[in-house]
Amino acid sequence: MDLAVLWAFLIAFAVVAYVILDGFDLGTGILFPLLGRHENRDVAMNSVAPIWDGNETWLILGGGGLFAVFPLAYAIIMPAIYAPIIAMLLGLIFRGVAFEYRFKTVRGRWMWDASFFLGSFVAAFCQGVALGALVQGIEVEGRAYAGGWWDWLTPFTMMTGVAVVVGYTLLGATWLVMKTEGEVHDLARRYAYFFGVSTLVAIAVVSAWMPFEQAEFYIRWFTLPQFFYVAWVPLLVALAAFSLFQALWSGKHHRPFLSALALFLLCFVGLGINFYPHIIPPDVTIWQAAAPESSLKFLLVGAAVLIPVILAYTAFAYWIFRGKVREGEGYH
């Protein structure tokens, strides 16, 4: 395996880590208006308050890593999805500040509730749009983006936007099932059913639609014998979905969340199958976009040493804040 491929896997790892980690805390934000009493919202927010910052750092690693090891991809993708990226960044600001501001006021609390919900929703939707824009193809000329600045706005990207919102909300709901008890727990369990079904529908629609966006995707999924190499992905999706609903039905606390994570991982694997070996389909491969070898090597040393350490202390932080978050047990 050469360095460019290794780095493609590392960046993919950072992105998937971001999606599932910030996924559940953005999802918690999207559920905010549906949680009833403000004490319930306190509990929901406190369940992610100590860890959201670390979760969002994976987004910086995804972006910063792309800049470092695939600078050409970074330079082409970011201008191509200019508007959704800016909107996502602004959304992340709205929700990020709410973690602190919300506990500084009583009269203005509704404002920061709204800010937390809207910021989470916009960030999730824009991430979906960005993904859709990448999937449907980006026009490249020389070493630059050559399309218009509304190219990202299509029915397909709106669909992927909705899919990511729904999926994150499922992650958030199952996270709350795991981390809370009483009223919030019961509410979250009910929402998990609804968003579980919605997520499956969204996965089905996007999966069926995607192969028609680019010829190469079609070949990988809808022709023989290619189909047999990839058929295990939809089979495992079905299994994860069964596990999710069975666990919700039988009152399990942890398994709904783990099943939802499995769904996300499988979707990500499916995307990877579409993309490889391209980083911007259909034009740019990972080797074309890769930085010179000295760059790949220099950062790889740090990544090899530091990523395991990061995973260890991140796990430690989750372990410190393990268990159920109780009402009135605010950290603030």
């Binding site: 750092t57 690693l61 910063g64 470092a68 600078p71 050409l72 010179p292 000295s294 740090g302």
Partner: peptide, 22 residues
């Protein structure tokens, strides 16, 4: 970004890995 990424990107990568996560 395209031109300086190979030089500046890894430095920022180290910032993320050694500082932001910490």
């Amino acid at each position: 970004s395209d031109k300086t990424g190979p030089v500046l990107g890894p430095l920022m990568g180290y910032e993320v890995l050694s500082a932001f996560f910490l």
